[in-house]
Design a protein around this nucleic acid. Structure first.
Lengths: 111, 111
DNA sequence: TTTGTTTATTGCAATATTACGATTAATTCT
DNA sequence: AGAATTAATCGTAATATTGCAATAAACAAA
């Protein structure tokens, strides 16, 4: 009891849920938005920017890296993170696939 | 320790995170997709459809209701749930606001 | 080699989520 | 009224998430 029953759902549902979960934290959204703004940055920046401990940020970065939405390359002593353009587009398409599945009935509301 | 530091983030980041969290479970995505397909249905249907216990589905429905993405009206002995068109559009816009914030650099990759 | 700098990992405490049986509440049917 | 139906709520066990101090690991500079 207490563990998500992934076996009951489609591949797509589980995948989208995983991606949504990765984005379901304000710190991770803040990281993504910061990467959008600067288009590449390092972990240290984020510690200043967000006000969370270094260990916590590193953990959030790992979660984002795990779903592939960001990627990091070692740059001397520090690490440069940036958006993965391909994955970003994929994830955007995943969400839009859901959102565009709804057409406002406009005529004949249900409830 | 262990509790999300919402105070560190913007209103928008916290809001989007809350919405993403509500969608970050395959059962809740399955519920939304089922509502999209049938455009109104009842709790009982979902128990058959998803294979989760009635109490569990009711709990997931409540979470979706809490962020306003679905609404339910009592219909005799059962309850009719459906998408809230206004909120659906709002949430779609929230996500697109994030996704469209990224422009593929194409020239001059960073990492 | 030693020191400093930067990021990752480990370990742990506090809290949140997930699932479900049991119960309750509201309504319909007989 | 009494039985049946449907959904919400309560209580609880199992697991996951969040945050951070402490430590480790990797590299550069002295």
């Amino acid at each position: 009891m207490g563990v998500t029953r992934s076996d009951l759902f489609t591949q797509e549902q589980n995948e989208l849920a995983k991606v949504a979960k990765a984005m379901a934290h304000p710190a991770r959204l803040a990281i993504l938005q910061h990467l959008l703004k600067t288009n590449a940055c390092i972990n240290g920046d984020l510690v200043q920017e967000l006000g969370l401990a270094q260990a916590t940020i590193s953990q959030h970065l790992r979660e984002l890296k795990e779903i592939g939405i960001i990627q990091g390359t070692i740059e001397g002593v520090s690490v440069s993170y940036c958006i993965n353009p391909k994955k970003w587009a994929e994830i955007k398409a995943l969400f839009n696939g859901l959102f565009d599945g709804y057409v406002d009935p406009s005529t004949g509301e249900c409830c």
